[in-house]
Nucleic acid binder design. Structure first.
Length: 559
RNA sequence: AGACCCAUGGUGUAAUGGUAGCACUCCGGAUUUUGGUUCCGUCAGUCCAGGUUCGAGUCCUGGUGGGUCUGCCA
């Protein structure tokens, strides 16, 4: 018997399927509409995957549209980084790259149309007056004294606004809807404001700019977007979105809202991220600790992992905070398949093999990736003096410690089994050297020693070691929800130890051949990625994410 | 205070009136020359109160809790 597993779809996909089944559209058309005023973050990735993914799956199209209606915050620099990030995620918008600013003339014409219908008017009130007359959710607003200007006067004034006759803030164009609506967005919302500012694309052609509410839905309509997907905070805007479309009698795009992505131990708004950058809490938008796509790329997150993550978190209307461990799960899943294994000792301590001939070097063969035979093998030099991880030796180890301690045996990965005989301390009481004897007949692949070693250590030949800088990262905030504390600033929760620099880790010689963009695993230490700060003689590696670590859990529990 | 929206294990998400399932996390075990990977398993959930129904996580009513809105930002 074949058990058919019922596929389930999220509510937006359900709507799309119903619309398609009902023949409402021949094909769906979505759009990803960033404002070019900052860098994309993982929250945008959810929207990108949703919009592009849906269209891809159902044979539709997705437009990339820059929502550039505010000339004072937007820059071409951001346009480029946004395009770069979308491409990196693996999506292609083809020729469909649009700008709301391309529609300024059309939007202006829409506005005149509403004025002529008596549905829009020019208001000379100040911003403060308009705010005061707006009322509150429980008290109706009061109509502006300019609300009943004639169509002719409104048209004349609006044209003169466009012509640049009036200074910033002196006049606005408002939709004439309902000053008593319980929905504040319907209390004569602003459509246009005067801004004598240079726009990054239209230059000085305009001095009036449409507001979001008078630009977004209309742009969707112009592009014949069938499903306009946005986040929950626009829910209250939907009646207005529909009002403009109805009054203008233009293509009826449909707005559907879903819950934005939140991750624990970080913040996810451009404003907050900008603050972290400007105040120097991080090195930039692409700091590897940032939840930006550029930060994650620099840290070594593969785009496939981010996509998988976005596809698995679901789409719903309920507020959520997703655990970072879920994202890390997808990162590890991807990296485990792909990362080239290397041996790098992060905190070195010297290991001396007392019975190994002085000056001798032999090559040890090791696989580049046990998960992928096609990645081949490489040779590692082995000698009398090695580096091992400081934490792999304990003078007085507890029971479950499978590593080195006086009298204990351990396997040096892809080499020999050694027994610890002795160790050397300095005046400060720190262990500086560990002395072992090796068993020549225990060589990997031809072990006839019969000795069992419970633990396996990574190592690097001291004579061939390449010093590198390693950067370890922890979560940016020490609180799972830094924004969730009323009356407290999110920056109070910044984790002061989110970056740890190890200036002199010791790597095997193969580290020199690591290419830019290559995914790595430093054996037993985690996944790593060459940082852009690297130069030929100074290599820097970011730890993308650690390995799951059963011992760390046991050790932590003991305390 | 008013309108709109939301409520399922620790987290996220399914179940479209008919056996509450999946993933992550946690915990335990097997395998392992990475305390990794892989495999197996355990614990754990429908906000509350009524109602409709043979049957309610699902529908209705009322609560409670949370979110959004009172920007010439998007």
């Amino acid at each position: 018997m074949e058990e058919k597993k019922q596929e389930s779809y999220h509510f937006i996909e359900e709507i799309v399927r119903e619309d398609l089944a009902a023949g409402k559209y021949e094909q769906i058309h979505t759009r990803f509409p960033p404002e070019p005023n900052g860098y994309l973050h993982i929250g945008h990735a959810k929207s990108i995957v949703l919009n592009f993914g849906l269209a891809e799956k159902y044979g539709g199209l997705t437009n990339l549209r820059f929502d550039d209606t505010n000339p004072t915050t937007e820059k071409t620099e951001y346009v480029e980084s946004i395009k770069n990030d979308i491409r990196w995620l693996g999506y292609d918008w083809g020729e469909r790259e649009y700008y709301t600013s391309d529609y300024f003339e059309q939007l202006y014409e829409f506005a005149e149309r509403l004025i002529k219908k008596g549905k829009a008017y020019v208001d000379d009130s100040t911003a403060e007056e308009i705010a005061a007359m707006k009322g509150t959710p429980v008290e109706p607003g009061t109509p502006s004294p300019y609300r009943d200007r004639s169509v002719e006067e409104n048209l004349d004034l609006f044209r003169r606004m466009r012509a640049g006759e009036f200074p910033d803030g002196s006049k606005v164009l408002r939709a004439k809807i309902d000053m008593a609506s319980p929905n504040m967005h319907l209390r004569d919302p602003l459509m246009y404001r005067i801004k004598h500012a240079r726009h990054h694309r239209t230059g000085d052609a305009w001095c009036i700019y449409p507001m979001y509410d008078f630009a977004h839905g209309q742009s969707d309509s112009i592009e014949h977007i069938t499903h306009s997907l946005c986040t929950l905070e626009f829910e209250n805007h939907r009646p207005l979105y529909e009002w403009f479309i109805r009054e203008l009698e233009i293509y009826p795009s449909r707005q559907i809202e879903f819950a934005r992505l939140n991750l624990d131990y970080t913040v996810m708004s451009k404003r907050r991220l900008l603050q972290l950058v400007e105040e120097g809490h991080v090195s930039g938008w692409d700091d590897p600790r940032m939840p930006t796509l550029s930060g994650m790329r620099r840290r070594g997150y593969p785009p496939e992992a981010i996509r998988n993550f976005c596809e698995h978190i679901g789409v719903a209307k309920r507020e959520n905070i997703i655990e970072l461990s879920l994202l890390e799960h997808f990162v590890r899943q991807e990296l485990n398949k792909r990362a080239k294994r290397l041996m790098v000792v992060l905190n070195p301590i010297k290991l001396v093999i007392t019975n190994y001939p002085e000056g001798q070097t032999e090559m040890m063969s090791t696989v580049n990736n046990p998960e992928d035979e096609s990645m081949g093998e490489r040779e590692m030099p082995f000698g009398k003096y090695l580096y091992i991880e400081r934490e792999d030796f304990m003078e007085d180890p507890p029971k479950k410690f499978f590593r080195l301690g006086p009298g204990r045996h351990v396997r040096l990965k892809n080499a020999f089994i050694v027994r610890c005989d002795d160790f050397v301390k300095n005046e400060a009481g720190e262990v500086t050297e560990v002395h072992v004897t090796y068993f020549p007949d225990s060589r990997s692949g031809s072990d006839t020693s019969g000795i069992k070693a419970k633990g396996t250590l990574h190592w690097v030949s001291a004579a061939h070691a390449v010093p590198v800088e390693v950067r370890l990262y922890d979560r940016l905030f020490s609180d799972p929800n830094p924004m969730g504390h009323e009356g407290r600033d999110f920056k109070e929760f910044i984790n002061p130890n989110s970056l740890e620099v190890l200036p002199k880790a010791m790597a095997e010689p193969a580290i020199r051949e690591v290419e830019d963009g290559e995914y790595l695993q430093f054996l037993r230490k985690g996944y790593f990625y060459k940082d852009s700060d690297s130069s030929a003689d100074h290599l820097v590696f970011n730890r993308t994410v650690g390995l799951r670590d059963a011992w760390a859990k046991i050790a932590a529990r003991k305390k």
